[in-house]
Amino acid sequence: MRAFSSTELANKTGDVLAAAAQEPVAIQRHGKSRFVVLTTEEFERIQQKKDTRKAVHVTDLSDADAGDLLSALEDSIEND
């Protein structure tokens, strides 16, 4: 994702919008991304996408799910 400072946004609005027409761009303040500028079409696509994730407390996991989670964590530790 391309990034622009908030000063660049103020001084080069056209450049920022041209970049945002191609892909989402980050707007940074003090070197940290604070906002994202994107097209309406991209925003609507993101809003319509169904998020199938859910939060579950570890005590509510089945034995099989807990085993899958541990395996995935171990694999991540070994391969990252």
Rank of each mutant, 00 (worst) to 15 (best):
M1A: 09
R2V: 12
F4E: 02
F4C: 01
S5K: 01
S5G: 05
S5E: 01
S5D: 02
S6R: 06
T7S: 10
T7M: 03
E8W: 00
E8I: 05
E8N: 03
K12Q: 15
K12I: 11
T13K: 11
T13N: 10
D15Y: 04
L17S: 02
L17C: 06
A18I: 08
A20I: 03
A21N: 07
A21L: 09
Q22V: 14
A26H: 04
A26G: 09
I27V: 02
I27P: 00
I27F: 01
Q28E: 15
Q28H: 10
Q28V: 11
H30M: 11
H30T: 09
G31Q: 06
S33G: 12
R34F: 05
R34H: 08
V37M: 02
T39D: 01
E41V: 06
E42C: 04
F43V: 03
F43M: 06
R45L: 07
I46P: 00
I46M: 06
Q47P: 00
Q47S: 06
Q47V: 12
K49G: 08
K49Q: 08
T52P: 04
K54C: 14
K54N: 13
K54D: 13
A55L: 15
V56S: 08
V56D: 03
H57Q: 15
H57R: 15
V58G: 07
V58M: 10
V58T: 12
V58I: 13
T59G: 14
T59W: 07
D60C: 07
D60H: 08
S62K: 01
S62T: 15
D63Q: 11
D63V: 14
A66D: 03
G67Q: 10
D68N: 13
L69A: 12
S71K: 14
E74V: 15
I77K: 06
E78R: 11
N79S: 12
D80G: 07
